[in-house]
């Protein structure tokens, strides 16, 4: 059974009386411990597909199965719960809470997951150490460099031990050196058994992945796997 199975996914918007097909019959299966890049020019539907996979959005029609659960039938609360437990998000702009310490930022998903305080602290520490920020736990985002902020965000994505890590242009706001460091973290996360989905338009980023899906006009244009 696939970890993620998208069957005949359509997402249709109505913009000023005109029908826009952001996703136009997409079929994708993702297995456990895949390292996948979703690529495509802007307007190709890659953001929509990412939101769909991330359970931020539901399809207009089609079936979305996530570990056997039917996502397309879920209400807001169920979607929130599946995002909380099974998906770790990494954003281009980091999206950390500016007034909270690194540790507190990492604890946020655990708070929503109703994890006890002492346990939360341990898990957050563990996650921050795994991205090499064990000594920056009590720093606030404005006291950290861009690369460090993105590492906090990765720790936050990891802390709930999610089924997939979904990264949207994770290096887009970083210089090339920091970007390289971030990609190394993703590589090692993949090697320790995580499933990673990158959304990017940079070939340099995409080449880290072992499978690339290219979208164009809401359709899968190519789906190439490279032997690891």
């Amino acid at each position: 059974m696939s970890l993620i199975s998208l069957k005949n996914i359509y997402k249709i918007y109505n913009v000023g009386g005109e029908e826009v097909r952001a996703l136009d019959g997409v079929n994708v299966n993702i297995q456990e411990n895949e390292y996948l890049a979703i690529m495509g020019p802007s307007g190709s539907g890659k953001s929509t597909l990412m939101n769909m996979i991330g359970c931020l959005d539901t399809p207009t029609s089609g079936l979305y199965e996530f570990e056997g659960e039917m996502v397309n039938e879920m209400d807001d609360n169920q979607l929130a719960s599946i995002r909380n437990r099974k998906i770790g998000f990494v954003f281009q702009t980091f999206n950390l809470l500016p007034k909270a310490t690194a540790q507190h930022n990492v604890e946020i998903p655990l708070i929503y997951g109703n994890v006890r305080r002492d346990q939360r602290k341990n898990l957050a520490t563990e996650a921050l150490e795994s991205v090499g920020l064990g000594d920056r736990m009590h720093h606030k985002p404005n006291e950290l460099s861009g690369g460090q902020r993105q590492r906090v965000a990765i720790a936050r994505a990891l802390v709930n031990k999610p089924s997939i890590i979904l990264a949207d242009e994770p290096t887009g706001n970083l210089d090339s050196k920091s970007g390289q460091e971030i990609m190394e973290i993703f590589d090692s996360l993949y090697q320790t058994g995580n499933t990673i989905i990158l959304v990017t338009h940079e070939d340099d980023v995409a080449k880290h992945a072992h499978r690339t899906i290219r979208l164009l006009d809401g359709k899968v244009k190519e789906d190439i796997s490279v032997a690891a």
């Binding site: 931020l56 807001d76 437990r85 999206n95 997951g113």
Partner: peptide, 16 residues
């Protein structure tokens, strides 16, 4: 607004 979006992505329900 963006903070709200982030929180929702991290699993906050509308009620939270």
């Amino acid at each position: 607004t963006r903070e709200i979006g982030t929180r929702k992505a991290l699993g906050a329900t509308p009620k939270m």
